[in-house]
Design a binder for these strands. Sequence first.
DNA 1: TCAGAATCAATCATAATCAATCAAGAACAG
DNA 2: CTGTTCTTGATTGATTATGATTGATTCTGA
Lengths: 250, 250
Amino acid sequence: MLTNERHDMILNLLAEKQTIKIQDIVDATGSSESTIRRDLTELENQHKLERVFGGATLSDRNSVEPSIVDKSTKNLQEKKRLAKFAASFIKEGDCIFLDAGSTTFQMIPHLKDKDIVVVTNGLTHIDSLNEYGITTYLTGGLIKSRTAALVGSQTIQSVQSYRFDKCFLGVNGFHENYGYTTPDPEEASIKKLASSLSKKTYVVADHSKHEKVSFTKILDLEEAVLLVDNLPLEALKSLEQKTTVKVEIT
Amino acid sequence: MLTNERHDMILNLLAEKQTIKIQDIVDATGSSESTIRRDLTELENQHKLERVFGGATLSDRNSVEPSIVDKSTKNLQEKKRLAKFAASFIKEGDCIFLDAGSTTFQMIPHLKDKDIVVVTNGLTHIDSLNEYGITTYLTGGLIKSRTAALVGSQTIQSVQSYRFDKCFLGVNGFHENYGYTTPDPEEASIKKLASSLSKKTYVVADHSKHEKVSFTKILDLEEAVLLVDNLPLEALKSLEQKTTVKVEIT
DNA sequence: TCAGAATCAATCATAATCAATCAAGAACAG
DNA sequence: CTGTTCTTGATTGATTATGATTGATTCTGA
C-alpha cells in the first residue's frame, strides 16, 4: 500500500469517527505500528490531525470552525446575492479593504471593470481578484493554513500603512448587545484595525449569523453598517436602534 | 506498444483507481520498469499526474491553477536536482527567505520535516509550503500577476522587519563582470534587500543562466554563493576567482 | 504513591524504490 | 547504405520506506 493511500485511509477513518486508536489503524491498513506512527507524525505536521496518547483526533480547531470549503458551499446562493448587494456600495476610485472569508470572496466578480484598489488578507481571494484584473495589494503575515488568511503582527503592520475609503468585513455572529464577534482573536484584531483605518465600515453577514456570539469581539454594532439579507421584522427594528442596517430586498 | 498508448493507459488506470503502483503499471503494459518510470516523469511534467514514492496519484490541483505553473515545465528535471542541492544547505532551525520563482519552488518538498521558518514573496509557493506543514510568512505588497510575485514599497517594508539566516534567490542571469541580473527592477530591489538582511545569500541558477545579462543588477558575484549545475570547467575557474561556487556534482 | 501495562520516540537492518547511466536495437533522414 | 537520433531494458549505487527492537515515558488501577 502506498503512503498516500494510507494517509487518505487514516483521514477517512478519522472523518467518520472523530478519534481513532493506533491499533485500529494498524488492523485496518495491515501496516506495522511503526509505519502508522510515522504517518501520524507526518499528518500532524501538515495540521491534518492531532496526535493524542494512544491515537489521533481531528484537530479541535477543525471541528469547531467548519473548514473553508464546507463553509463556502453552505448558503452559497444567499451569499452570492448578499455579496452582490454589498459590492453595490463600492464607488469608482475607492480604495477598499476586503476581509478574508467566503462571503467577501463572492463580492469579487462584481468589482470587475471598477477602477478601484483592493487590499486583502485573504489568500483565497487573490486568484479571483487577479482574474478580474483588479489592482490588488496583499497584506503580509503568517499564513493561517486552515482559513487561508494572513494574521499576526506582520499583518497588523502591513494594514497600518494603508487608509481605506471602505472596508468590508465578514463576521461569525452579530448580536444586539455583544456586537460583532468571531472565533479567532488574531483575525479579530485585523478586522478591527482595518475598520479603524477606514472612512466607512461594512459588515457583511447573512441572517444565519443573527444572535450568534463567538469568542472574540470585533466591533460594537454602532461602529459599522450591517449588510444583511432577510431578517425578521422585530429583529430589524431592534438592530436599527443601534446602527444602520441595509437589507438586501428579495 | 507506442508511448502514447502507454500514457493513455496509465491515465485511464489512474482515473479508475485514484492512485496506482508502478508494479501494477508494469504488469498491465508489459513494459519495463524503466520505461514506466520515464512515462511517469513525463506525465508529471505535463501536470497530468503526481508522482509519489512507489507509484503515482491524480493531482487534484490539476484543474485549479493552470496559469502560473506553465513556465516551470522547462528544464524541470534539472531544476529539481538543483533545488534539492540548494535545500541541502538549510539547517535545522534556520529562518530563510525563499524568493519567488520556479527553481526556488522546487526546493519546497525538501524542506519537509525541517524545523524552519520560511518567508517568501512568491504566491505560487504558499500552497506547497502549506501542504508540507512549513511555518510560512508571506510578505505583503502589490500582486504582480505575471510572475505571481509580491512587489513594491509594501513588500520592501514587510521584508525589512525580518532577519534571515539564509536567503535563496533566483536570477535571470549571472556574469563574471556584470554580476547577478534580472529583468524587473521591482523584484531586483526585493532580492537585494533580502540578501542584505541575511547572514548568507545563495543564488540558485542553472547553467543556462551563465553569461546572460538582464536589465537590472541585483548583486555582485562576490555577495552571494552561487549554486549551479554543470558548468564548463573554464567558466567555473573564472567564476571562482570572484566568488564561492557550489556545483551540484553530476 | 506505586507497579504493571500501554504507548512512545529513537535506532537499526532490511527491503523497496529511486535517478542516472549504458548499450542494444528501432526509426529516421540524408 | 550510413550515420544520427530516439526508445527501450538492464544495471548501478543511492535514497527512502518499512518493521522489529530498544529503553524511556505516560497512563491506569489499586
